[in-house]
């Protein structure tokens, strides 16, 4: 983890994207980041949020039956 780049965001699942989004929030709230890094974190956060939203928008409840063993 922590190696998220802009490129692989579109392949993240909701849980990962959401967890990383929360990480970004934590990071910017805790650390005094240099400006360049701040802007990078901001952009990463926006992309992760958009990814989460897209996954929610496109999601369709899956229903399965538990197979009897």
């Amino acid at each position: 983890m922590g190696t998220t780049t802009m490129d692989n965001i579109d392949s993240l699942g909701f849980e990962q994207a959401f967890a990383q989004l929360q990480d970004v929030l934590k990071r910017i709230e805790s650390a005094d980041l240099p400006l360049e890094e701040s802007v990078a974190q901001y952009e990463l956060g926006r992309k992760l949020a958009a990814r989460c939203q897209a996954l929610l928008d496109d999601a369709e409840l899956r229903v399965r039956k538990l197979e009897e063993e």
């Binding site: 909701f14 996954l55 409840l61 899956r62 538990l66």
Partner: peptide, 18 residues
């Protein structure tokens, strides 16, 4: 149950134990 979950938790998966 499905109606509620479709609306509120579309990313979830339901596993029915009949």
């Amino acid at each position: 149950v499905l109606n509620v979950l479709r609306r509120r938790a579309p990313l979830a998966e339901v596993i029915l134990s009949h």
